[in-house]
């Protein structure tokens, strides 16, 4: 099947500095792709290059087999939901949503019918005559989405559409957006710096770092097999311990080994607090890397305990079903699947 979007070797410059380097991306029809990354990684720039707002220095962008690398924004057919929503304050909700249809030469009655249909779809019934200033943040966001969906774009571009909303509204909208995308079969590219948002929404995630793709794949693949320490850290593996690789494995300070495909030498072990366990000293450990440590602080965030453990001069966090006494000796277990090991030379 023809792909909805192809990005081939795209480079973008801002003045003298190159902010995107050799980006390749293919999006299938009805696929939901998230561009994830820290601020300044180039994810929004890539989206704006696809929309035609920033010029491409090198490479090619195609939509449904049509080359749009140098086409003006209005000739690209994609629709964008802006981070600031960018609703037109002088137009009513209905006129905002109907704008693209009017430009496409639709008759008034047909536009009105389509607007009503979209208002119902987005649970904005009866708000067509309001001005954007009279709506709540969540409602504005849905109007912006309605405006983009109205033209049935081959490609929907979402630029951090939920970053201006409070946590609860965001949660609801996230699920609504996913349901809507499935229901309508929309092809979408979603820019976000929120890992959870990217994981819940996307079929595939592109993690960008300093203008290059750090890793690409389905959410589960990025989660369980991060390609670099940077990706692991970005996906929540914020604990780090220094280990030694030798003979195709790394060993825990107090026993246990995990096979790795690394040359002998110093290595970095990264793991997530919620995937590690705290064991009492003396208990026979299950498979995994074991480290001796001292419980420094115990907190109860709900559901279980979170223990700050000091081990080999570093402090790490681990979840625990039981509460060790502060200052007591404990063992930290990192199960094989939770241990992400990288060569110390890699950044």
């Amino acid at each position: 099947m023809q792909s909805a979007l192809t990005v081939e070797g795209v480079c973008v410059d801002y003045g003298a500095s190159r902010v995107l380097r050799q980006i390749n991306l293919t999006v299938k029809k009805s696929e939901f792709v998230a561009l994830l990354g820290a601020s300044g990684c180039g994810k929004t720039t890539l989206l704006r290059a696809i929309a035609g707002f920033v010029p491409v220095a090198q490479g090619r962008i195609g939509v449904e087999g049509r080359d749009i690398t140098h086409a003006p924004p209005e000739a690209r057919g994609n629709a964008m939901v802006f981070q600031s929503y960018a609703l037109w304050p002088h137009m009513t909700v209905a006129r905002n949503i109907g704008y693209g249809l009017k430009l496409r030469g639709w008759a008034k009655a047909r536009i009105a019918a389509r607007v009503v249909e979209l208002l119902a779809l987005l649970r904005l019934d009866g708000l067509g005559d309001r001005l954007p200033a009279q709506l709540s943040g969540g409602q504005r966001q849905r109007v912006a989405l309605g405006r983009a969906l109205a033209v049935e774009p081959p490609l929907l571009l979402l630029d951090e559409p939920m970053s201006n909303l409070d946590a609860r509204v965001r949660e609801t909208l996230r699920h609504e957006l996913r349901a809507l995308q499935r229901q309508l079969g929309i092809t979408a590219i979603h820019v976000t710096h929120d890992r959870e948002e990217a994981m819940t929404l996307a079929d595939r995630i592109l993690l960008l770092r300093d203008g290059v793709i750090a890793q690409e794949g389905p959410p589960e693949a990025l989660w369980s097999r991060p390609a670099s320490a940077y990706v692991a850290d970005f996906l929540g593996a914020t604990n780090e311990l220094a280990v030694q690789a030798g003979g195709g494995a790394v060993r825990g300070g107090a026993g246990g080994a995990v096979a790795v495909a690394l040359p002998d030498g110093p290595a970095r072990l990264l793991f997530r607090p919620q995937e590690a366990t705290v064991l009492p000293v003396g208990e026979a450990p299950p498979p995994g890397l074991v480290f001796e440590g001292v419980a420094r602080q115990v907190t109860y965030p709900g559901g279980g305990f979170r223990v700050a453990i000091e081990t080999s001069g570093r402090q790490v966090l681990a979840d625990s079903a039981w509460s060790p006494a502060e200052g007591s000796a404990v063992r930290l277990l990192v199960p094989p699947a939770a241990a992400h090991v990288f060569a110390a030379t890699q950044t």
Partner: peptide
């Protein structure tokens, strides 16, 4: 706002429109 104008272009309006 720049985005307000870009949104119009994105929806299919030429520069003049």
């Amino acid at each position: 706002e720049d985005d307000a104008v870009l949104a119009a272009r994105n929806m299919g309006a030429g520069a003049l429109t």
